[in-house]
Design a protein around this nucleic acid. Structure first.
Lengths: 246, 246
DNA sequence: CAATAGATTTAGGGCGTCCTAAATCTTGAG
DNA sequence: CTCAAGATTTAGGACGCCCTAAATCTATTG
């Protein structure tokens, strides 16, 4: 088919007719771009540069699609990358990511507190709204619910200025037997998980004690309030805690 | 280096689907499609079938672009049309249009009443949000502000079931000298106009008397409350009223 | 009734985002 | 140190929605 012999490394020039984009103008990013930046931020938070496959998995799209988009993000100055080496947010990219994350989490909090949403429904709604709200609306919502520091699942909300608490927390899987800990955050994307957590009384702020730990990555036995329950590792790894002194 | 965990990147397909979609599934319309339907609904309300140029003007896009989109709308069963003859909404199209209009107007009302938005800012915000909110959120917002019948500019809000008051109102331009009338609605897209109207005291519910009418489409003199003011025809045609008995 | 102005559609592109298949690169195991 | 498995990129398309220019249709009017 195509007469290819080696890697010609074609410097693909697109966008031929328009002026080079200024990269710094905020508020003009498309929804997919905002989603990529959020995903990359999330991956960077727990390790090295974001790998193509990780981004693809997080966004549920094909890895090949990510390669193309990453180039566009780099053209806009939002990420830096070397081929085959993963992606990192630039300052501009990080700022944009945090702006989107702020929107998302403020919206979640507002929906829960001002409109009576259940905590397992807010994520999906925020996922769409985060691309549509203005800064003014986000600020009004934040102020209406008392400038919250975290969303309903315990995730920290960046400030208007893009400052966020990036403390790493350990999960229930990391807790030793007998240890008491306080739940700080729970994973927010799985609605079913959230409903289950609510049922067994696990939510941010609650104190749990790990009383038993079955071997071979088996179930954990927890004291939650006056009750106790057993949870598998899949759940435990999605509950973030801070350890309490004895 | 990093143990990048490699999830197999399952490409769970988002769209694709080569088969023609069955038109009747709501909630899957793109933002441009919803905008077209709203525009066509608006044009149909004041006359015959919507002409290509009218749609183009209302959406600020080229007429040629409308032709293409109209075909896609027809493919989806949202409009019916004959080439060169204009467009009409089908029942499905009308339903979709009213759903979007309900979203828009509920959002406007909520922003104004629950979040302290000025009435000249709500339109732009609603214009983006109307494509992102779920039915649940719209219903919650509507109920939070008391199931309003009209938005802040006086436009009727369709019910959940798609019922809307389609009464035609006359404008201040149509009012005779000496006639008293009550403002029912004002045009909502021009922010500057809205600020001016607020300044001179014209808003839905207010009673005005037309005391003078200069010839050749000249300015009108109005009594608003205890004050009076003069307004040009451009403004007068954007204020809808109902006539009051003497 | 024919000419023409204006409305509309077609032709031909562009950009953004996604996909599958087919290279190609990196890396860890042996 | 070689090699294959896995990660990544390139090739080649598709779709939605927009644009300009050019063709074509409608309808008015002289």
């Amino acid at each position: 088919m195509s007469a290819r012999k080696t890697k010609p490394a074609t410097p693909r020039r697109r966008n031929s007719s328009t002026i080079a984009p200024l990269a710094s103008t905020p508020g003009e990013l498309t929804a997919p771009v905002e989603d990529y930046l959020k995903a990359i931020y999330g991956i960077e938070q727990e390790g090295e540069a974001a790998a193509t496959t990780d981004i693809a998995a997080k966004l549920s799209i094909a890895a090949a699609s990510v390669s193309g988009m990453v180039r566009r993000l780099a053209d806009q100055g939002l990420v830096s990358y070397e081929r085959y080496r993963g992606v990192r947010l630039t300052d501009a990219g990080r700022r944009a990511a945090l702006r989107t994350i702020r929107r998302h989490r403020v919206i979640e909090t507002y929906l829960a507190q001002a409109l009576g949403y259940a905590w397992d429904r807010v994520h999906a709604e925020a996922e769409r709204l985060e691309h549509a709200v203005s800064d003014e609306l986000v600020d009004r919502m934040a102020s209406a619910v008392g400038e919250p520091a975290t969303d309903p699942h315990g995730h920290p909300i960046p400030t208007r200025e893009g400052v966020i608490d990036e403390t790493r927390h350990c999960t229930l899987s990391d807790v030793a037997r007998g240890q008491r800990s306080r739940v700080t955050r729970v994973s927010d994307e799985d609605s079913e998980l959230l409903r289950y957590l609510a049922r067994i009384g696990i939510r941010p702020g609650v104190v749990v004690q790990l009383s038993e730990r079955a071997p071979f990555d088996g179930p954990l036995t927890l004291q939650v309030g006056k009750g106790s329950c057993q949870v598998g590792p899949a759940l435990a790894s999605r509950v973030m805690v801070e350890l309490l002194p004895d």
